[in-house]
Computed example of a mutant assay.
Amino acid sequence: MKQISIIGIDLAKHVFQLHAVDAHGHKVFSKQVRREKLRLTLAQIPPCHVAMEACGSAHYWARDIGTLGHEAELLPPQAVKPFVLGHKNDARDAAAIAEAAARPATPRVTIKTEAQQSLQAVHRVRSRLVRERTAVGNELRGLLGEFGLIVSQGHAVIRQGVIRERLDEQRARLGEELYTLLNDLLDQWLENDARIARYDKRLQRLARASDDMQRLMSLPGIGPINATLLFSHLGDPARFPNGRQFSASLGLGGVNN
């Protein structure tokens, strides 16, 4: 068998497509491997570059493959797309990944640590709860307004029980069906608010336990939530030559530093 230089892997839930090439870009093999066999298959191949698109589970696989002695790389999907020949399928996707990985100019995505991914998971769940709280609050205020009950804006009004008091006062006029519905919406909002508060405390605890996040919080306007969020994206700051490139990695185009 020819010496393998690069293996492109099209990741999936159960069956992965592998495309291996030698140092001259010639195909060595193209085959499917089931998830439970991927690690064994790669362990039997001498160390080489293993490239994947940055997608769901990619960071996990990159870390795991790195323990086998291979050099794992993640590529942005938009950088791989131009190399797909013909109609898209798993085999062509894997070949395109290998082709893109062979070009030094192709950008790489830094592999995230488990700690970074854990922080991102906490932030994703918290963000979803914030969106749900906002949606429930808007729905609650809208329904109250349709029945002539106008309350002030802000979370404090709901937390302090003002809406509950108004509902109790107007119970007879609203009727049991509507009264029960509005109270249920109010309970949903309060439950989400309590969950968000618990996530905030968790993030504060994580921020206090990290020297890197403590340094981030020393900057004006950066608290525990922003510090943990920045750290989950930043990782090793040495990989960014300047602040502008870090801003670009966050999607903040046009930021001057």
Rank of each mutant, 00 (worst) to 15 (best):
P224T: 05
F231E: 03
G235T: 09
L229I: 05
F246W: 06
P224N: 03
P220A: 14
I222K: 05
R244P: 01
N226Q: 10
F231S: 13
N226S: 11
P241D: 06
G235S: 11
I225S: 02
I225W: 07
F240G: 09
R244T: 11
P224Q: 03
T228K: 02
H233V: 12
N242C: 15
P237T: 12
S218E: 07
S232D: 05
R239C: 13
S247L: 10
S232V: 06
A227M: 03
L230Y: 10
I225L: 13
L234M: 15
R244N: 06
Q245C: 15
L230Q: 07
A227V: 04
P241N: 11
G243W: 03
I222N: 03
L229T: 13
L219K: 02
Q245I: 14
P241K: 15
G235Y: 02
M217Y: 00
S218I: 00
F246G: 04
S247K: 00
S218R: 01
T228A: 07
T228H: 05
R244E: 11
N226W: 02
G223A: 13
A238R: 15
L234S: 08
I222P: 00
S218L: 00
S247C: 15
S247I: 06
I222Y: 04
I225D: 05
G235M: 04
A227K: 03
L216D: 00
P224K: 03
T228Q: 07
P237D: 08
S218C: 02
H233A: 10
A227R: 01
N242P: 08
G223Y: 05
L219I: 12
G243E: 06
F246L: 14
H233T: 10
N226C: 05
D236V: 14
T228Y: 00
L219E: 02
M217K: 00
G235Q: 08
F231M: 11
F240R: 09
M217Q: 08
I225K: 11
G235N: 08
R239Q: 14
L234Q: 07
S218N: 00
H233N: 12
S232F: 00
F246E: 01
A238W: 04
P224W: 02
P237M: 12
F246D: 00
